[in-house]
Amino acid sequence: MNRIRAVVRSIEAHEALHRITLDAGEERFVVITLELADEYRVGASVDISFKSTHVALARSLKGELTISNRLEAVVAGVRRSRLLAEIDLRSRAGSFTSLITVDALERTGIQEGDRVTALMKASDLYLSRIREA
């Protein structure tokens, strides 16, 4: 599971639904979730978590996209297997990985050192409160 440390910037509620914006480094994230416990409030430190399978990658991205979260990242490593490849990424918000098909890897020509855009839907990210040890 990928984890990125962030601070809650704003919370917008509509009945049980919440849209939360967060700051991580200089990057902005948006998360959509149902009921929110009281401890998630503006200024709280949280971890944004997401699976590698929920991260899409784009090279030379152009045009309009509905995906709320896009992160500029550098490819730090490519571990290619037969059907799938695990891509290590570094961004201003932190490091994370993306799991993509080898077909997609070949089609996009992504390789180590490339600049890419990582794309995550707001409903694929979840939050957990950081507990002080």
């Binding site: 149902l34 929110l36 978590s49 297997s81 037969r82 059907l83 799938l84 979840y126």
Partner: peptide
């Protein structure tokens, strides 16, 4: 509702379990 649904994380679908088997193949 507070006890069961509003959890410590924003995951609403969470169950306690025990790992029975771990496997590795391809990149996963």
């Amino acid at each position: 509702r507070e006890l069961f649904v509003e959890r410590a994380t924003t995951q609403k679908f969470a169950f306690k379990g025990e790992i029975l088997e771990l496997k590795s193949f391809d990149a996963i």
